[in-house]
Computed example of a mutant assay.
Amino acid sequence: MELHEQKFEVVSYALNTSKTLRELPFYPANVEYRTPKGHKIAPQDSVRDLGVHGARKMAAWTFSAFKDRSPTVMLTLYKSMVRPKLEYCCPVWNPTKVTEIQKLENVQRSFTNKISGCRELHYWERLKKLKLMSLQRRRERYCIIHVWKILQEEAPNDVGFTFKMHQRHGLKAEIPAVSKSAQLSVRSDYDSTFRVRAAQLFNLLPPELRSLTTLGSFKAGLGRFLEQYPDTPPVPGYTPQNDNSLLSWGRTHTMQLSRA
């Protein structure tokens, strides 16, 4: 694969990361990457990820360039210039760790705190007032839409999704099995993959919604479905009922129905 050496960085993951090993003369040659033209892409200890740095810089520029803090102006700027940096290709890297969710959510939390009439409101209250979804909820929404597009052959099925019609539950995405003997860490990584998590999110939808065949009607129905669930993303200093994933809210709803 030919890569632009000035636009790519290499991060190496290894079981043995001792300082002594990294100082050996032959170590860099084992972890660096050379393009077919001979250009070297050297390994880095850390790289910028998740779009947090870029989004914060753009938010800071927005506050310095525009003095109007009205909701209409600020939300227009946020949606067009800041939020896209946090959501580019998000179905691929959608994080499940609370600390990573908070880092992303803090960008939106900080921005909305500067909008007129919102400073005194808690973040969850600001989301309702401004009619915004949490970034976490939006990422799960994107995952669901992408699975629907794969089903309707509007997006390439690169990860091998399969679907099966069930007599009671309608059309559902098949979830690949994982070995029962796999280590706990492997199973945790498996549960966080797009192939598994996105399928679980898609299967959470009502059968009649999963069976819609036009994007407009599916998005409209998905929007109504999402409104049924609270949107209380993890925030430092507050203890939410769960991790705010639709999967967690879905399990809570199922338990309430079984008790009833």
Rank of each mutant, 00 (worst) to 15 (best):
F202G: 05
L127A: 04
T17D: 15
Q102G: 06
G216S: 15
L121R: 03
G38E: 06
F8T: 00
H4M: 08
N203D: 01
V159S: 05
T96W: 03
E100F: 10
V52P: 07
L212W: 00
S192V: 03
V186W: 09
G170E: 07
F225G: 09
T239L: 15
P95H: 00
G221C: 08
V196W: 01
L247F: 03
Q183P: 06
L3A: 02
L130T: 02
P25T: 09
P230R: 07
G216F: 03
E100N: 13
N242T: 13
A260L: 10
T252N: 10
G170I: 06
T162N: 11
H122I: 11
P95T: 04
S192Y: 04
L21M: 05
Y190R: 04
S258I: 11
F66T: 13
K37V: 12
I175E: 01
A65E: 10
T214C: 11
E208G: 04
L246G: 00
L132C: 00
L257D: 11
M165Q: 12
Y88A: 13
H166E: 13
I150C: 09
L246C: 07
R210S: 02
F202V: 02
Q6C: 04
Y142H: 07
C118H: 03
T99L: 10
A182P: 10
R138Y: 00
S258K: 09
R195Y: 00
A198D: 00
L171I: 10
K103N: 13
Q6E: 13
A60S: 12
V147E: 01
P43K: 03
P206C: 05
K164D: 11
R251E: 14
R168I: 14
Y190G: 04
T214Y: 06
P207M: 04
V92M: 05
W124V: 12
K79Y: 05
V10N: 00
V196C: 08
W93H: 05
F8C: 04
A155L: 05
L121Y: 07
H169D: 15
S192L: 01
S217P: 11
P230H: 06
E154D: 06
R126E: 02
K67S: 14
P176D: 02
S217F: 11
W61R: 10
P236F: 14
R22H: 10
D45I: 09
L75Y: 04
K57G: 14
W249K: 00
D158Q: 02
G51H: 06
D49H: 11
L86K: 00
Q44N: 12
R187N: 03
A155P: 01
F163A: 06
T72G: 06
N242Q: 14
R138M: 08
M74H: 02
R168W: 11
M165E: 12
L222K: 03
V52H: 01
S70D: 07
A220N: 14
A60P: 01
G38Q: 06
K131T: 13
T193R: 01
V47T: 06
F161I: 02
A55K: 00
T17C: 15
K37T: 15
T252M: 14
K97F: 11
N106E: 13
K114Q: 10
P230I: 08
H169Y: 15
T17Y: 05
T254F: 12
Y27I: 12
I150Y: 01
K85P: 01
K79N: 14
L104T: 09
